[in-house]
Amino acid sequence: MATNGNNENLKDLVGQFFNAEEAGRVVEDVREGEWIVREYGAPEPDSRLIADIKAEIGGALAERKSRAFRRTVYKVAAVAAAIVIAVTMSVKLSERGGESETVVAASMIPAAVWESDDIAVDDAELGTIVGEIEELEGDLLALELGENGGNGYEAVEELEAELEEIEGVFWKG
């Protein structure tokens, strides 16, 4: 085991810091000192220790691979979850948008009301519908303000069921 010091030119290096006379002595001290260290070699590591270290490295590598795999799985799962949430929300939003148009604009005012000639009866019917709509507006406002106890999905479904019931009652007269 020898010091090669990347084969640097010790004389040149020392010459930059010491005068010529000192430089010679410094180079000799360094070379002689390193020769002593080389001559008095240190013990070698035990072969069992080397085997243990290699086994330990094997364990550390397995752990590293396992961590990398888990990270990949978590990333894929997170992306998949984000896609599922995004798709679900867009489907829900498009469903809600469609239903509100159908319920409020088309189904709530039956054609019979428009075609009837009995204004008094029609006014009474319309008054009931307006009352129901106002009640629903209140419910929707409560939903928007988060006053529904936190379960928005159930509340919307309840609201939809209520609208369907009103519609059914109205058509039955």
């Binding site: 020898a2 010091g5 640097e8 390193e34 080389r38």
Partner: peptide, 14 residues
């Protein structure tokens, strides 16, 4: 320092 020089075989610059 002496041991680092000897066992790492590094130059003084390194």
């Amino acid at each position: 320092l002496i041991m680092l020089r000897f066992y790492s075989q590094a130059s003084f610059k390194e």
